[in-house]
């Protein structure tokens, strides 16, 4: 078995299982930490708050803060975060090869976008990531908050994007299989790494956002 087959086959399967096991663990572990009942009388609807917060947060783009901060100190961070996540979403779900990968795992497929679009979104995503990284390096707040885990997150997410890009464009004259193998290797690592890192925020997001919407909806303020 050559490397490509190994990274696409057994290692992918292992990575997928680690990912599933890890995420189920993370989710349940958090949820099972115990909840407190809120006895204070509601001034508004928690459910409406949840709906509103998702419409604001996800309906636009996940990165737009539900309330614009007012200070326009770092609008670039918002924009870059949005470019990165939107691009990532499009690349992961709306490119044909990725959809086919999902289909083989999930059993159903969906329509996809033409390749040049995907290409553009991938580029946008990478540019966004580079801006976010420079922000982490340049801004004192970024430097202070970023630990080893966050640097690693960046690399682990950037590499599949980069290798996918190189793969699509046949850059550097590398044999297709070699880049494909590298791409699959980085994807496998991403899957394995997610449960051990804060990239799992795509899961916790739905816990915290729901809580946020419910809490402030209940208080009678716009979440």
């Amino acid at each position: 078995m050559d490397w490509l087959e190994f990274f696409r086959g057994p290692m992918f399967q292992i990575a997928l299982l680690v990912f599933i096991l890890g995420m189920v663990y993370r989710f349940l572990r958090i949820v099972l930490m115990g909840w407190k009942k809120d006895y204070s009388p509601p001034r508004g609807s928690a459910a409406a708050g949840v709906v509103k917060t998702y419409v604001k947060g996800l309906g636009f783009l996940p990165f737009l803060p539900p309330k614009f901060p007012g200070t326009r100190h770092r609008p670039l961070t918002y924009i870059a975060g949005g470019m990165f996540h939107l691009g990532l979403f499009v690349v992961i779900f709306l490119s044909t090869p990725h959809m086919e990968a999902w289909r083989s795992v999930l059993g159903f497929g969906w329509p996809t976008l033409p390749t040049p679009f995907i290409d553009g979104f991938a580029a946008m995503s990478m540019i966004g990531m580079i801006i976010l990284l420079s922000n982490r390096i340049v801004s004192p707040v970024g430097r202070m908050l970023t630990g080893l885990g966050e640097w690693l997150n960046w690399i682990v997410v950037f590499l599949p994007l980069l290798s996918g890009w190189v793969l699509y464009h046949h850059l550097f004259g590398m044999p297709y299989q070699t880049i494909f193998a590298i791409h699959m290797f980085t994807v496998d690592w991403l899957l394995i790494w997610i449960p051990f890192s804060r990239i799992s925020h795509f899961m916790t997001y739905f816990i915290t956002r729901t809580m946020h919407g419910a809490k402030f909806g209940r208080l009678g303020v716009e979440p």
């Binding site: 696409r8 299982l17 599933i20 189920v24 990968a101």
Partner: peptide, 29 residues
């Protein structure tokens, strides 16, 4: 099968995913 589809038996993958979820749940509990 599409080039993007990881090789391997799909049925087994489903079952393994099920076990992984159960394993994760058990660990979490």
């Amino acid at each position: 099968k599409s080039l993007a589809a990881p090789p391997g038996a799909e049925a087994a993958r489903g079952a393994q995913a099920g076990f992984a979820s159960l394993g994760g749940a058990a660990l979490a509990v």
